[in-house]
């Protein structure tokens, strides 16, 4: 269908051979999502690699959400209100506690700390939010894709056979890309 071919291969997957990471950011309804709203209304710019999930509070982020995200994403960002400014009094601190523990677990699995980051953004900090997204996208781009064999099985309990998620989607996107995939990606796919 025309829609598909119209921008086939133009997606985050591979543009001009440059690695475009897919990053999931958890935002809270009161501060960081509103900062994203503000970034929008003020027409500030940040890379399209970041996709947002709105929750009521950063404390709602279940480690299972992060694990699920890592099955497909190259990085995950946790954002919320500044300490002491939480709409739910102190729940962002509980998110922070979990973040620290979870990052340790992820590190033990071989996930670089740059792939799991957090920052605060008040409802007034659209500029800061955009700048942080910029920074993290560049850091993750430098690290390259999070692609290894059995990744789905590692992150998603009782996952469907390989190729169910992003790996296949990304491969499909790349296959339709005008530019041939970079050599190392090809190699990675062959060896996978």
């Amino acid at each position: 269908m025309s829609a598909t071919t119209a921008h086939a291969g133009a997606a985050p997957a591979a543009k001009d051979g440059r690695f475009e990471p897919v990053i999931l950011a958890f935002t809270c309804n009161w501060c960081s999502y509103r900062a994203a709203d503000l970034a929008g209304t003020a027409r500030m710019k940040y890379p399209p690699n970041v996709r947002l999930v709105r929750l009521m509070c950063s404390g709602r982020v279940d480690p299972a959400f992060v694990m699920r995200a890592f099955a497909d994403a190259d990085a995950v960002i946790l954002t919320g209100c500044w300490p002491a400014d939480c709409h739910y009094r102190i729940q962002n601190v509980k998110a922070l506690r979990r973040f620290i523990l979870l990052r340790r677990v992820l590190e033990s699995m071989g996930i670089e700390p740059q792939r799991f980051q957090r920052f605060y953004a008040s409802a007034a900090e659209g500029q800061q939010l955009a700048a942080e997204f910029d920074r993290i996208v560049e850091e993750v781009r430098a690290l390259g894709p999070l692609d290894w064999a059995g990744r789905h099985a590692a992150f998603v309990p009782s996952a469907t056979p390989p190729g169910a998620g992003v790996g296949e989607a990304r491969a499909a996107a790349e296959a339709r890309a005008a530019a041939p995939p970079p050599a190392e990606r090809e190699l990675a796919e062959v060896t996978a």
Partner: peptide, 10 residues
């Protein structure tokens, strides 16, 4: 996360 670049989602 599974809808990438015009490809069908997982």
């Amino acid at each position: 996360l599974t809808a990438l670049g015009g490809a069908p989602p997982g």
